[in-house]
């Protein structure tokens, strides 16, 4: 009996140590406090980051109509998923309910590392799995722009997430499995194609909708931009791979500026907001997106 007790105690100790090690390995990982010490933010450039990142599409008021012009960011748009319903938080400059009290480093930890200001893991409805490679200069510029936006006192709404996903510690494991800092499309890319990759794989977070997900909600990198069921359950998000999207680079860039398809049909659905955002970017950036898309592997 005594031996059995000892074995049991050992098991508990080992199990506890294993759990502690696992929690340690999956702990929220923030930047070092001086990571952005030498960076100056530029609000004009920051607005370009804001549009490229599509921030307004999720964080504007639920009844706002134009993501390309919106400046009020009270949050509140609901995102239903099989894991629960997420509500975009207030990212206005309100110091209490928004992020007016955040430093640029706080913003970097949230966007790039998926860690909130209290050191908690954030849910990947916030697309940090895509923002992972955002440069800290871009974050500094974005921060400089965000503080110029009006304060909105609307409180953020708590997410409605079911067990076990309501335990934020589980998100550490999710990040370990599905947040990958490596680019998907690699090889000998031109400077323009690399810029396009930064916009598509990173800030623009195109893959969040256009790439299918596995059962735990991780993006399937081996089916990159191959099209996916719509998160809203309505229709299908089309593939962007060159075998399926056979538009010319000029057509793709023009669509992102005007919302017109090659046969002059008008953009529809969620892409209307994406186009509103992209219409504020430079021709160079839209051309870069088009150039990158031609380098994505076929989806078969």
């Amino acid at each position: 009996m005594r031996r059995l007790h000892k074995a049991f105690a050992l098991l508990i100790v080992l199990g506890g140590a294993g759990a502690a090690a696992a929690l340690y390995l999956t702990r929220p990982q923030t930047f070092s406090p001086d990571a952005m010490a030498n960076l100056q933010g530029d609000a004009v450039r920051g607005e370009q980051v804001f549009r490229a990142g599509g921030c307004a599409s999720c964080h504007m008021a639920p009844d706002a109509t134009n993501a390309g012009l919106a400046v009020d960011m009270p949050g509140g748009i609901a995102f239903a998923s099989e894991f629960g319903t997420f509500y975009a938080p207030n990212i206005s400059s309100d110091p209490e309910h928004g992020i007016g009290g955040w430093s640029a480093l706080d913003l970097a930890n949230a966007m790039v590392r998926g860690v909130g200001r209290s050191g908690e893991h954030l849910y990947p409805a916030f697309p940090y799995a895509s923002y992972r490679n955002t440069t800290l200069q871009d974050v500094a510029d974005l921060h400089a722009y965000l503080v110029t936006l009006p304060a909105d006192p609307t409180p953020s709404r708590a997410h409605e997430v079911s067990f076990p996903f309501n335990l934020r510690a589980t998100l550490g494991f999710w990040k370990l499995m599905f947040v990958n800092e490596d680019w998907v499309v690699t090889g000998d890319l031109t400077e323009v194609e690399e810029r396009g990759r930064y916009l598509v794989e990173g800030l623009g977070h195109c893959a969040e909708c256009h790439t299918p997900r596995n059962q735990l909600g991780g993006m399937q990198r081996d089916a990159w931009l191959a099209g996916a069921p719509s998160a809203s359950g309505e229709g299908v998000v089309p593939a962007l791979t060159p075998d399926k999207l056979q538009w010319s680079e000029l057509d793709i860039a023009y669509y992102l500026r005007s919302g017109s398809t090659p046969d002059y049909d008008s953009v529809g659905g969620e892409m209307v907001e994406v186009v509103e955002n992209f219409s504020h970017l430079s021709n160079e950036d839209r051309n870069a997106v088009a150039a990158y898309l031609k380098r994505v592997p076929a989806s078969n």
Binding site: S230, E234, G235, V236, S258, G259, S260, S266, V267, G268, G269, V272, E273, V275, E276
Partner: peptide, 16 residues
């Protein structure tokens, strides 16, 4: 074009 998008964004069904 914006007047086309005003309907196609929220009121056009997205076909599979």
């Amino acid at each position: 074009n914006d007047t086309c998008k005003a309907c196609h964004g929220d009121f056009k069904f997205k076909p599979p």
